[in-house]
Each structure stands twice: as C-alpha cells, then as structure tokens.
Amino acid sequence: MDWIDVVFILSGLLCLGSACTIVTRKNPVYSVIFMLPFFLGMTILFILLSAPFLAAMQMMVYGGAILVVFLFVIMLINLRPEEIKDDFSLWTYTPAAAVGGVLGGLILSFVRHGIPDGSELDKNFHAAVNNSRLMLDLGMGGVAPPLGSIDSIAIPMFKQYVVPFELVSILIVVAVLGAVILAKKRV
C-alpha cells in the first residue's frame, strides 16, 4: 500500500463520515459546520487527482463563500434548538435510504463492469497518477502544461468553452439579482 493510497483512504473516509454527519444532524448549524471537514476531504482528493487549481477554488468558493452564506442564513433565521422540530422518522428515512442505496448500487455496478481493472481508462489513470507524484509541486519542468495547472485549464476554458463560460457568468449575474430581489423586504 502506497502512501498515496493511505491519503486517499483517509480523505475518502473523512468525506464519507462528514457527509453522513451533515445529513443526519438535527440542528442545521452542525450540518454546516461539518461541511468544513467535508470540503477539506474533497480538496485533498482534488489535489490527489491532479486538480490543484480546482482544489484551491473548492476551498475558496465552497469553504469561503457558500459555507459562510449558509451559516449566515442560519444565524439570520436564528432558530433556537428547542424550536427545531425533530425530523427523523422511519417513514422518511427508509424510502430515502432505499432510493439512495439503489442509486449508489447502480452506479457502482456500472463502474465495476464498465471499467474493469486493467482497462485503458484505468491504466491511463495510473500513468497519470505516477506523473502526478512529481507534479504535486506545480508545473515544474514539463514543456506542455501539466494537467490541472492554471494554463491547462485557462486555455481550453477561453477557447473551446468560452460560450458556456459566458453563459455561466450571465447565470451568476441573474442569480445575484434574483437573490437580491427575493430577499428584499416587502417583495
């Protein structure tokens, strides 16, 4: 077992555990607080998957902005613990668990049979993994920008994906305006 496997397992377990905590806490404040280790785990996974820029974005946008907004809203609403209704019931969790289980099972089954060990994707993934050990320190050396560096993301983003990019920016503007209008008093 390589050290990278160890890191992967630990961060994966961190994610799974905090995700479970997020969805099961009665008080939403705990849910939001447990988002932090969840995002941390995701960030480590992204770094392992040679997506350092994305990892940085994840930490900044999710951990820095979205999470804070959630926390902010919870504070704003200011539900006292005794006002929070208990929403655990077998009637709701059983079908949800069934649906979630079937969904996860289906994806797993697909992954298992669709991408067997030693398939081209798998091999390529490992080849990239071996490269990425050296590339953990960003972009030293190679001629072509390595996967996940800012260059390698920026160039296709502003060439091939420029239309979706612009659309997303419009979406964000619209969403911000919509949020302002929705949250204004006396709509």
């Binding site: 995700a19 969805v23 969790y93 949800a96 979630g100 969904l103 994806i107």
Partner: peptide, 9 residues
C-alpha cells in the same frame, strides 16, 4: 457514488 447517494438521501 457513495457521497452522491448520501446527499440524495
């Protein structure tokens, strides 16, 4: 897949 299922749940 596992995280997705947990979120969906």
């Amino acid at each position: 897949a596992a995280i997705f299922s947990i979120g969906a749940m």
